[in-house]
Amino acid sequence: MDRIKEKMNQLRLEAEQSVAKVEELQTKIKTLEQENTQKEQEIRSLQHRNEVLEAQVDKLEENVKELKAAANEGAEHGTQNETLTRRLQLLEEEAEEADRTLREANEKLRQTDVRAGHFERKVQALEQERDQWEAKYEEMAKKYAAVQKELEDFQNEINTI
């Protein structure tokens, strides 16, 4: 009788541990899903920023072309030419800075994509682990029910004796 009680207590303890582990895994899954959502938002933000920067680069490149054409036409006008040349240099520096910023944004986007893939694999692994724990929990519940039935049968036998 003590062995059965001990076995039942052990099964109860294992069931409680399984439930606790499932809850812990579900919490981890929620956390990872939130992180994944944040990363997706960050990706969208970086993509938008990338598009804005590309538009700025196009605009700046057009400005550079326009200023170069104006500089060629105004070669006779020394003062005006110097002013336009300075302006052109500033725009080229801005274009280089915008290009550098665009490259950095693209690199960050690539890194974010890599991280998102990593987290997706992690979520899949955790989901598989959760499924395994759920299967173990169901198996333990069946064993517990079988032991409970054996105990009832045993008690019925004792009572009939």
Rank of each mutant, 00 (worst) to 15 (best):
E150I: 05
V57D: 04
A71E: 13
E33W: 00
L32S: 03
L109T: 08
A95G: 02
R103W: 03
L25G: 03
R100C: 00
H48V: 11
D113F: 09
Q111Y: 05
R3F: 07
T83F: 15
R49H: 15
Q10S: 10
D131I: 04
K142T: 00
R12S: 12
G78S: 13
M140I: 04
E139R: 05
A105S: 13
E107S: 11
I4W: 04
A116E: 06
E24H: 10
S45W: 09
A98I: 00
E40S: 10
I161K: 12
E33G: 01
T85M: 12
T112D: 09
V22C: 05
A105M: 10
N106S: 08
T112N: 13
L25C: 05
Q80I: 12
Q155V: 09
Y137V: 00
M1L: 03
E107L: 13
N156G: 00
T160G: 03
I43C: 00
R49E: 15
Q128D: 10
K30E: 13
T31R: 05
R130L: 15
I4V: 11
D58Q: 14
T101R: 13
E157W: 13
R130Q: 10
L32V: 01
N106V: 07
Y144T: 07
I29Q: 13
Q56G: 01
D58M: 10
K68V: 06
L109E: 02
E134W: 05
K28I: 07
E51L: 14
L32M: 10
E97H: 04
M8E: 15
E24L: 08
Q89C: 04
E104C: 04
A141E: 07
A55V: 08
I43F: 06
Q148E: 12
E24G: 06
L102E: 01
A146Q: 08
A55S: 13
V22W: 06
E129V: 03
E51H: 15
A95C: 11
V147A: 05
